[in-house]
Structure formats: structure tokens, C-alpha cells
Design a binder for these strands. Sequence first.
DNA 1: GTCTATATAGCGATAGAC
DNA 2: GTCTATCGCTATATAGAC
Lengths: 215, 215
Amino acid sequence: MTRSDSTTRDGLLDAAESLFAEHGFASASVRAITESAGANVAAVNYHFGSKLELIKAVLERRVGPLNAERLRRLDLCETRVDATLEDVVAAFVEPALAMVRNEEDRTSLARLLGNVFSQAGAELRPVLLDLFGPLIERFVVALERFLPGLAPRQIYWRFHFMVGATSFTVGLGNIAQAYSDGACDPSDADHLERELVRFVAEGFRHGARAPGDAS
Amino acid sequence: MTRSDSTTRDGLLDAAESLFAEHGFASASVRAITESAGANVAAVNYHFGSKLELIKAVLERRVGPLNAERLRRLDLCETRVDATLEDVVAAFVEPALAMVRNEEDRTSLARLLGNVFSQAGAELRPVLLDLFGPLIERFVVALERFLPGLAPRQIYWRFHFMVGATSFTVGLGNIAQAYSDGACDPSDADHLERELVRFVAEGFRHGARAPGDAS
DNA sequence: GTCTATATAGCGATAGAC
DNA sequence: GTCTATCGCTATATAGAC
């Protein structure tokens, strides 16, 4: 594969991402994907080997950079002495919301990532653990520094709640707009970001001592 | 249909619920469902008319009572003068967690309900809005009483975050056990319930005045 | 690297006997 | 109300021409 002919491969990834987001991994067919990409039906098998490998490639292309950015921001928190719990939460939340923010096609990437956990069947579970496992460990360690006095299981559960709120918002933020009769506007990303970060940070904080307080 | 022959119908609902939860609506086939129920392949079409109608019946059988219980507990909050924000949150969260708690088969109902929003395709969206719309309105009104000073869009977004955290926990609580290396135990329902209710309540509370404070 | 044609299998749904 | 048999369709995947 040369650089010039990667357009078909990339076109397949783009089309697959969009259709997976819209219909789910199972319901988006290889035929629909190739047709949407303007490629031949056999292209998926030629370039990826199977539909499952295509799904993995779609995930890795997006989740890799997303989690790399999260870790980059977490590094910043850990080198700055004036970092707050809100900064750590924002390091996790904001890169995810940024994908919605910069997305012209609202039914594409964001919805896919938001629903990736619930959509994933047994065959994708190991892939997700590989992609997210190291990230979780790093964040839990960082959170412990800001939340002295909490038991590990409390940190893990609250981290789980954060993932749930974030995924649900990234994937299904538009339904909030529907049932709130327009009061919630997902395109007002600044407000949404501020609300989610503070909601999660306050949820994390309760029952913990102030950082550095040894009492 | 007489009372006595409803066993086939109920068996289909049970089998469908379990297989939908395990494989998703799209991937769980009518053939697998009827086989699992010990019924004939034609039984789904005879009793429900189509696969989509079967999905609707499965959802309504469970979501109806769940939301009825939530509203019953919300009514209690509104008649008691000493009710707290935590009580309102618990009215939403605990009936959902109770389904996990009392569930022998961990891959069944709970996972289905937790993932119902992300699994639902376009054809199920109206059904879900019918099932959840009135509930949302009631809760938002009740929450406003406990959160003076917050804008409606803040209440709606935070409600959305609560739904996300709750759904994710109900549907995928077992993955927290996996990546926390056993520190999180979903079967310790009392601890999980307390953590989730307080996490959400503190998230709701920030930036609001104390209830009754007109300052 | 892209194409057509096809192998193989599973799907939802239905007709008609019992 | 349950059964078998089957229709019509779609799916993934592949073989082989170009």
C-alpha cells in the first residue's frame, strides 16, 4: 500500500465511522459502508480482512489520539502545583466534548464513542480494555492525590460515574435538547463543558479531605 | 388469548429480554429467541406480529413498572416537608439499582435497561420518549424546588448527567469490577447506591442556594 | 488495487397442514 | 396455538478476471 492509494482506505474508515455511529456496529453492513465510501463491496475485505478488523481500526484511529490527549493534559496537571481537582476532571472530559464541538456531522464520531461501551459485544471487550485500561490507572492515581481520605473503591466507582455521564453526554447530548424543549443546547459547548466538569468534580469531592490536609 | 396459554408469550418475553441484553436488539435473532424459549420459530410473529413489536413489549413490561416506582417515591418526597435533594435523587436512582440488586441473572434485564438509549435505533426513539418524557418533567419540577437559583438548562443538563451515570452503572457496572481489580463490587448494592446518590446529589447542588433561602 | 460474480449462511416473515 | 417448509432478502466473505 502506497501513500497515494490510502484514500480508499481512509474513505472506508470515514464511512464506517459515520454508519456505525448512526446504526450501530451490528446493523451497519459492509455493503452500506462500501457504497457510502464509493468503493467496491470487496474493498473492506481487501483493506482490513474482515468487518471486525474494520471496527477495530475505526476505534483505534479515534480512541488512541483521544486518550493520548487526555494523558497529555493529565501530565500538565501533575507538573503544576496549583492544579485543582477540576483540572483533572477536565483533562478527562474536555477532550471528549471537544470532538462534539468540532464536529460538523453530529451523528458521526461523537455518537460512536459515546456508545462504544454499550455497543461493544464480547469480541470487542478486550480491545476496549487495551485502549482504556492504562488511562484508567493513570487517572485513578492522580485522583487519589486530590481526594485524600477516600477508599480506592470510592475513587473507582466515582470514576465510573464520570465515564457514564461523559459518554452519555457525548453520545446522546442531542436527546437532552429534545426533552428539555430546547433549553439544553449541545452546541453551546462552553456551558456544557463547565456544567459537566463541575458536576463531576463536586461528585468526586464529597466526603474527602482537602488536598494536603493530613487531619 | 386465555390466561393459561400466556406461558409461551411470557417465555418469549423472558428469552428476548435476556438475549437482547446480551447481544443487543439487532444481533439477537428471532430464531435464537424462540429456540431459547423452547417455542417454535413462528411464535414471535404469532404472538407479537413482528420483531419490533416484541422489542416494544419487552421494554414496556420493564420500564413501565420501573418508572411507576420512581414516581411513587417522588410523590413521597413531595408530601414530606423534611425531604432532601438526596431523597429526590434516590427516587430516580434506587429503583434502577434495585433491579440489578435483585437480579440473579446479571446479564439480563439490567444490562438491557442501562443500554436502552444507546441501543435504540430511530424506530425506538418515539417509544422511549413516550416512556420517559412524563417522568423527566415531573423530576425536573421537583428538582427545581431543591435547587433555587439554577437556570432550567442547568437542571436539565445535570438531570442528563444523572441518567448517564445511572444507566452506565446499571448496564455496565461489572466492567468497573474488572478494571478496578475487584475493588468495586456491584453486588455490594448498599455501598454502590450510597456512592451514586451522593455523587449525583453533590453534582446537582453546586452553585444553587439552599432550599428556602430567598437571598 | 479494483472489479464482477458467487459461495454460503442467516435473517424476518408467512402459508398452510394439523 | 403450534408445527414444518419455504419465500425473499440480506449478510459476510471470497475467487478469479482485469
